[in-house]
Amino acid sequence: MMNKLLLRASAFLLALSAALPATAFPDRPLRFVVPNTAGSATDTLARTIAAYVQQKTGQSVVVENKAGANGIIATEFVAKSAADGYTVLIGNVTTNAANPSLYKKLPYDADKDFAPLSGLGRASQVMAVNNDVPARTVAEFIALAKANPSKYAFGSGGASARVASETFAQMAGVKMLHVPYKGNPLALNDLMAGQIQLFFPDMSSALPLIRGGKIRALAVTSGTRSSYLPDVPTLNESGLPGYEASVWFAAYAPAGTPADVVGALNRLIAEGVRSEPSVAFFRGIAMEPFPTTPDELRRFTRKEIDSWARAIKAAGIQPE
């Protein structure tokens, strides 16, 4: 009788152990690696999602900024990290879509070296000028730039701003100087100071400065007007038919991360994007929530890599 009870107990424990994961994930602190400077849209978004994940799991989430080299430093770091789910790239359109066409050789493969987790957010860009620039419309800026070839300088804190600017220059038929920066905040500071005259930041970075009168918005890059700047026309409306651009942010783990860990991270991050505090945060920075499944993000990323390759070629940008 005792042996039968022991056998039944053993069978029950085996069934229970099979139904439960051997170790709950995460069981130690996580690291969110950001390829941009503190204060950038990618950084503030990372910290918002990190706060949710930390509250939900009880594990601390360290946000680590590794800015520089157009996001390559941080992206390579994550690509070569242990595939255990504890190091996550808070990537963006630059790191995971544009860079493959901006460089002849990258130390990472934007598709094969990552396990997509979830989309985070999407936003349009703004064509913004320094307040001293005597142009109130896109047409007036184009006229100034044509009358003064290479006099006006545009900044880029990443691929999205550079491609937006180069596409504008190509479509408008103007010549401008390119000044690269390590991140949008630095470029915005120089735009306000008049060191550069034109910049195409994401809406979330630009909106507070536009509303505060620190810089002037001439147009938005989206296909339709933004509800955040309803009086600002699109570039398409402003004489550049077909012009459209946007930025996006997403989370990736190193390739080879176990499927159950990818699933756990997807649930945590997507839930964080949908949470009430995050939705309020998105609304406050003029960004749209963009939660996805891992498969949806993989398909989206591949499509974006192809789309940016065409845009970069059309803008006449030569790979470095």
Rank of each mutant, 00 (worst) to 15 (best):
L209M: 08
V273Q: 03
K112V: 08
F77M: 10
P208D: 03
V273E: 00
A74C: 14
S101D: 10
E320L: 12
V133I: 15
S307V: 13
G183Y: 07
S101V: 00
N3V: 13
F141L: 05
R216H: 14
T293F: 02
E304N: 08
R28V: 03
A69C: 13
S60E: 10
T257I: 11
V273C: 01
V78L: 12
E276M: 05
T57K: 03
P21H: 10
S124I: 08
L268G: 03
M203Q: 08
L218F: 10
L218D: 07
A286M: 09
F141Y: 15
T48D: 07
E320C: 04
A172I: 13
R274N: 15
V93F: 12
K56N: 13
F77D: 04
L186D: 11
Y228A: 13
G256L: 06
F154K: 01
P21N: 02
L102N: 05
S101I: 01
G39D: 14
A46G: 00
V232C: 09
V33K: 11
L218V: 01
N130A: 04
N266G: 07
E76I: 01
V174Y: 10
V262S: 08
R283T: 10
K105C: 00
D202C: 02
V279W: 05
M171C: 03
M287V: 08
G183F: 15
M287A: 12
R8T: 05
A206F: 07
T301D: 06
